[in-house]
Structure formats: structure tokens, C-alpha cells
Write a protein that binds this DNA or RNA. Structure first.
Lengths: 341, 341
DNA sequence: TCCTGTCATGTAAGCGCTTACAAAAAGTTT
DNA sequence: AAACTTTTTGTAAGCGCTTACATGACAGGA
């Protein structure tokens, strides 16, 4: 046995004194091989340190038991968490997950889609719905099933998600109900991110609905970091009239905003209310705990996996799975200052 | 053109009126094909929506431009961040990253290593050094290069990391220097996690070195969540003597601990000091900001990629790249209560 | 005109595997 | 013991691609 020896099926077959077909059967349908032979083969496999070549296998069998996912970035905890669940559900079905990142760029996403398909993905998970038609066409033309998660659309695709717009409108309405009249929003970056855009639209629509009550409303966008949330809060709080409530497009921005508020000596929610969206882990552990929209990312991930697996197996599926979200009232939202309750 | 048509090289060749060899050359070494032909071929590629099959390509060319990484979990932000950098550096070299998760289980890690090798990974990134010898043997026997990150070992492997033990000892010494005599530690789960274990060992060694000064020292382990950090803090704070400083094995535990301390009405660091490890983003945004060990995860990730790429290319590399870490003094560590400064 | 050198393209042999089909072995029935 | 069935194993084609080598076309030099 050489240094750096990569044994093939053939090597195993020779070592065990059987044909390659038998070895292949030992590995894939062990029952079709008599125990004595099987043991001999398995010994050879072990002795040689044989690992089947996935490429060869895929080529010959024309199936891969693999699905792909293209997510904006793994650095975002909500995707990390959802994907984890997605992956767990897949492995229960013996399916492997391949992950690729798009960096919120739909051209890069298209490339990654092709790369995953090229690697034999039987199905794909994509995030949201903002992407060139060409990407959809490509997938449909090849007959590769895909699901879209973290949002709901109105096309004939398969969605596993929630209504970002409605949820955002709801929490905004809550803010208005509490008596806030000067309101601002720190939104996530909306270009190429339909979830962020929908959340802005939801908040805007709530403002429009309460147009007679709301005196001022302002939106600024900020990248997905605590620091940017803090900076955005800084800018917002200098405006006149100063907002009494800041609705954030996600929890990361909200946590950054709370932190900066306290640093500026503003009480939350006494002087200013702050809300989030997503309910990431840290949301419960900041002071005050964040009032936010709870999104069950794990549930969404495994639901997506279930739908995708059925799609691949050609079983009937519901076209949209709506994941329930709910506002969790914690400590960061209260009535505006100077209100007698 | 059929529904669900997956064109092959052959289809493209036929459509363009050339041989498969020419199409292959157009895709891989365009200069070796005369422009007129190339254009014809590229048109056919586009028209048919052709995507090269990775398996076939790998099989025929015997290279994949792919490396694999097995990390404990993608839900841990430090790995997410390090991997992101790892991946960025790889793609600059035109190499694709395949990620797999082990869930802190070395058996599963071994499986994933085989799976990645089976998929043609030219090299591997593994985390830490606690794993069965068999895994190393397997890789060495096949001649698959690998690097180990997030820790430093003393074997002849390639390490890109830092001395968890020393860094932990340093921050512990700092705590002792400040006058703390009753000290506790909330450690990460140490089984199958050499980084966590080294950090405990480092803190212990600092305690031993100051054995005449330190009156009490206690360690409990907790899983990697804010909640578990908080719960652990709860337990610790009930002990007598009550520790005046809690050294945490990572920032997540520390943030959980701080949050619980404040909920219990304990001032940090006035009544009790808390330190972290890793310097994740949130560390600067909690109140008080966390005194912790800053680890440049991104730098580590891209250094790991560089070493691995050189290893694959058979270029000389240094066997260990030590990544510098440093204690960042923020607000959560102070002298014990009742000290006159 | 013929010969030689270059360059573009084609031919065909696999890469490692699965799987129809064929063949051989083992068991069953008469 | 022969004839038949069932089970186990082998043979070999081919999955989609790359690439060494063969072929052919064309240009330039004699």
C-alpha cells in the first residue's frame, strides 16, 4: 500500500476477490449479498480505507440525495438557525445539505444556484423572492424543485414563510395605539432584500392608516450590525421633533439602538420606546428586554425541508405554508413620556 | 426542447455543430478555440441553459477546486464569522467551500470528513484537536491535506490558532491582581471541546499560581446559550462564599451572566465582576460592556485558508500560525467590593 | 509545386461508479 | 436424479466530462 493511496471500488473488489458489482451492492443494498461475502467485502473496505467517490456514484446512479441552499450570509444568526433546522430535517431523510452564500447579490445568487445544480442538488432552498426572472426560469426549465422561505409571495412557487409586511404593520399599530405620535424607523438595507423592504412597507402602511394621529414618521436604513443600529439611533434622536418610539427592522438594529439610548442617558421605554423584529436570542437578555416580533426560525427551516422533500419525491404539497409570528411584549415598548396612564 | 431538460456537453456540441472536446475547451481554456467557434458554442450553452456537471468534471479531470470544513455548529457566531473569512479567501483563489457540521461529536466529525473527501475535497479545515487518531490516520493515508484551527497543538499538524490556555490564564491573573479572592468560572462544555477545556485549564493554572491569595475557586459548565449562562450564574451566586468575580469560558455565557446579575440587583462590576472570552459583537453593546479576550476570528479564518491553499499546492508553509489575542478591558471587570482603590 | 510547421478541431479512452442482464450456484419439487 | 425456481454473483455498458493523441487545414518557405 502506497503513501497517499486512494482506493477505488475496483481495489476493494480485487482485495475481496469479488466483482465491483458485488462491492457496490454491499454498500448500497447489503441484503442482496450473502453474509459471508459481505463480511469479506466490508473487511476490505475497512482495511483499504475506502471512501466511495461521490462524483462517480452520482454519475452512474443519477441521484445524489443532496439539496442546496443559497442564503444571503451565514453571519446572520436567523439564517444560521433556520438552516440548522433545515439540515436536521434533511438528514433524518438521509439527504445532505450544501450551503452557498450570495452576499445579498442576486447575480451571485444565480451563480450559486447553477453551482449547486451542477453539483447535483435535487432541490433548492432560496431566501425571499426578489431575484431575476432568469433564475426562476432556469430552475423550472431543468425541472429542479425549489422552495422560497422567510417570506410569502403570490406567484405559483412554494413558500414557507410569514407575512413580513403584516407583522411589521401590527407592531407599528401597537406603537401608535400606545399613544406615540412622533415615530421613526431604523430599517435593514432594503435593496435586494424583500423581507426588509416589506417590513418598511408594513410600518408605512400602519402610519398611513393612522395618518390623522401620527405627527411625524421617518425611516433610515442601516446595515445588519449593532454598531450601525447605534449610529442610526444617534442620527434619529437628533431630529426634531425627536421621535418617542423607534421601530427597528430587526433585533440587531434594535439592540444597537437600545445600547446607544442608554449611553445617551435616555431611558427605555421611559424616554423612548424601541421595538425589534425576529426575536433572536439576545433579545431577551438585553435590559430592558426587547419587545419584538417572534419568528420561529427553526420551525420555518424544518417546514421548508419537509416541503422540499415532498416536492422532490413528487408528493402533493400545499403551495404556501404560513408560519405564525407573534408580537412578544417585553420591556422596551411603553407609552410615550408625559402620558398619564 | 422538452420540459425538464438537462442538457449535457453532448447536447451543446451537437447544437453548435462541434465535438464535445471543443465545447469542453471553450469552457476551460477559451483561448485554444478560434473566436468564431467559441461564440457559436457559447450561444448554444446559453440557449440550452447548460450547466456543467460537477461530478463528471471531477471524475474526468481528477481535480475539484474544492475544500471542506467540518465545524461543530453553524449556530455559533464565532465559527460563522471565521468560516465566512475562510470562504472569502478561498474564493479569491477560485476554490469552493463545502461546510459540514459535527455537533461536537467526533464520530459524526469522522463521518463528515469521509463525506467531504468523497465529494472530492482537496483539503480540509477542522476545528481544534480533540478527535480519534483514526481520523488523522485516514486523512494522512489518503494524502489529503488539512489544517486545524482555533487552537494550537504540539503534533506535526498545521495549526492556525491561539493558545486558549495561556489567554485564559492571563485574564484570570488579571482578575486575581485586581484583588479578587473568591472566584468562580462558568465554562463551556468541555467534553469533546478542547478549546473549552484549555480555557478551564488556563484559569485553573492561574489559580494554582496564586494559591496563597485565592481563597475559593469553583467551576461549573454550561451549554452555549445566554440562558444557560444566566442559570449558571444563578447557581454560583448562591454559594458561600459568594464569588466576587465570575470568569466565563465565552462571551455568550458572560452576557447571560451579566443579564442575570442585573436582574438580581447585583451591580457589575460594583458587586461582582464578570469576564468573557472571544469578543463577539454583542460584547461591546451590553451594559456594562464586556471585558473579554479579543480573538480575531476573521483573521484566523483567512489565515487558515492561506495555509490550506499552500498545502494543497505543495508549497512550503509554517507549521503553526499563532494568532495574537489580547485582553480588552471594558466595563465588566473591576476590583472586588469594599476595596479602597 | 511540394514540404513543413502551426494551429484548430476531432476521436476516443477512460475517470469511479451503478445496474440491466447473463450466468452460475444453491435450493425445491417431482 | 432431473427439472425447475430462486438466490447470488459476474459482465459490461454507460453516466458527463477531460485530455492525449490523431487528423486536417492552412500558411509560408523552398
Amino acid at each position: 500500500m502506497n503513501e497517499t493511496f486512494r482506493p477505488t471500488l475496483n481495489d476493494v473488489a480485487r482485495a475481496a476477490g469479488v466483482s465491483t458489482a458485488t462491492v457496490s451492492r454491499c454498500l448500497n443494498e447489503p441484503d442482496r449479498v450473502v453474509p459471508a461475502t459481505r463480511e469479506r467485502v466490508m473487511r476490505a473496505v475497512k482495511d483499504l480505507g475506502y471512501t466511495p467517490d461521490f462524483g462517480g456514484r452520482a454519475l452512474a446512479s443519477r441521484r445524489t440525495k443532496t439539496v442546496g441552499a443559497v442564503i444571503p450570509t451565514m453571519e446572520n444568526a436567523i439564517f444560521a438557525r433556520g438552516l440548522q433546522a433545515f439540515q436536521e430535517t434533511l438528514s433524518e431523510a438521509g439527504v445532505t445539505l450544501l450551503v452557498a452564500g450570495s452576499g445579498y447579490d442576486s447575480e451571485r445568487e444565480a451563480e450559486q444556484v447553477r453551482a449547486l445544480v451542477g453539483r447535483g442538488a435535487d432541490g433548492l432552498l432560496l431566501i425571499g423572492l426578489a431575484r431575476p426572472q432568469a433564475t426562476y426560469d432556469y430552475l423550472r426549465q431543468r425541472g429542479t424543485p425549489y422552495v422560497l422561505a422567510w417570506n410569502l409571495g403570490d406567484t405559483s412557487d412554494h413558500f414557507i414563510g410569514f407575512d413580513n409586511l403584516r407583522a411589521a404593520a401590527e407592531i407599528a399599530s401597537k406603537v401608535i395605539e400606545l399613544g406615540h405620535r412622533d415615530i421613526a424607523m431604523i430599517a435593514g438595507v432594503t435593496s435586494m432584500n424583500d423581507r426588509a423592504a416589506d417590513r418598511v412597507e408594513g410600518v408605512r402602511s400602519a402610519m398611513r392608516r393612522a395618518i390623522s394621529e401620527v405627527k411625524s414618521f421617518d425611516v433610515i436604513e442601516a446595515p445588519y450590525t449593532f454598531e450601525d443600529g447605534a449610529t442610526a439611533f444617534d442620527r434619529l434622536v437628533r431630529r426634531t421633533p425627536r421621535p418617542t418610539a423607534v421601530i427597528c427592522g430587526n433585533d440587531v438594529l434594535a439592540v444597537g439602538a437600545i445600547s446607544r439610548a442608554k449611553a445617551l442617558g435616555l431611558g427605555v421605554p421611559g424616554d423612548i420606546s424601541i421595538t425589534g423584529f425576529d426575536d433572536i436570542d439576545i433579545a431577551s437578555f438585553v435590559e430592558p428586554a426587547l419587545t419584538t416580533v417572534h419568528v420561529p426560525h427553526r420551525r420555518m427551516g424544518s417546514a421548508a425541508a419537509q416541503v422540499l422533500l415532498r416536492l422532490i419525491a413528487n408528493e402533493p404539497v400545499e403551495p404556501r405554508v404560513e408560519i405564525g409570528v407573534e408580537i412578544v411584549m417585553r420591556g422596551s415598548l411603553g407609552p410615550p413620556p408625559g402620558t398619564t396612564p
